[in-house]
Simulated assay, not measured.
Amino acid sequence: MIKAIISIEIMQSAIVLFFVTINFQVGAQPPIGVGHQTNVSDPLPQALMLTAIVIGVAVTAVSLAMLIAIQHKYGTTDWQELIKKRRELGS
């Protein structure tokens, strides 16, 4: 289960990096300051990715809390052993 949680985090980080880099423009300036700038970067993707990072941290925290609860209840974090124990308890 730890590998699954780590995999989800890696995918989330890859998505954030993808969206931040897809918006990259050479020579773009931040949309802050005085004066009229012609080549300004769009702040929306960065703002959305900050939100995605916060959501990713929350998902990881809930996943780890569920992992701890499963380990306490069933005594394992292995998917196959967990499925066996659930079938034994269910029948």
Score class of each variant (00 low, 15 high):
residue 2 I to G: 05
residue 3 K to G: 11
residue 3 K to E: 15
residue 5 I to G: 01
residue 5 I to M: 05
residue 7 S to Y: 05
residue 8 I to G: 06
residue 9 E to D: 06
residue 11 M to P: 02
residue 12 Q to W: 04
residue 12 Q to I: 12
residue 13 S to F: 11
residue 13 S to I: 13
residue 13 S to G: 09
residue 14 A to P: 00
residue 14 A to H: 08
residue 14 A to Y: 01
residue 15 I to M: 09
residue 17 L to V: 08
residue 22 I to R: 11
residue 22 I to Q: 14
residue 24 F to W: 05
residue 24 F to N: 07
residue 30 P to Q: 04
residue 31 P to G: 00
residue 32 I to C: 11
residue 36 H to S: 08
residue 37 Q to G: 11
residue 37 Q to F: 13
residue 39 N to F: 15
residue 40 V to S: 01
residue 42 D to R: 02
residue 42 D to F: 03
residue 44 L to E: 08
residue 47 A to K: 09
residue 47 A to L: 15
residue 49 M to Y: 07
residue 51 T to G: 06
residue 51 T to L: 08
residue 51 T to K: 09
residue 56 G to C: 02
residue 57 V to G: 02
residue 57 V to I: 02
residue 57 V to A: 04
residue 60 T to G: 04
residue 61 A to K: 10
residue 64 L to C: 10
residue 65 A to V: 05
residue 66 M to R: 10
residue 66 M to T: 06
residue 67 L to W: 09
residue 67 L to C: 03
residue 67 L to R: 06
residue 68 I to T: 12
residue 69 A to V: 11
residue 70 I to K: 04
residue 71 Q to D: 08
residue 71 Q to A: 02
residue 74 Y to T: 00
residue 74 Y to I: 06
residue 74 Y to K: 09
residue 74 Y to G: 06
residue 75 G to S: 00
residue 77 T to K: 13
residue 79 W to V: 13
residue 81 E to I: 07
residue 81 E to D: 12
residue 82 L to G: 05
residue 84 K to L: 15
residue 85 K to W: 04
residue 86 R to T: 12
residue 91 S to N: 09
residue 91 S to A: 09
residue 91 S to G: 08
residue 91 S to T: 10
residue 91 S to R: 12
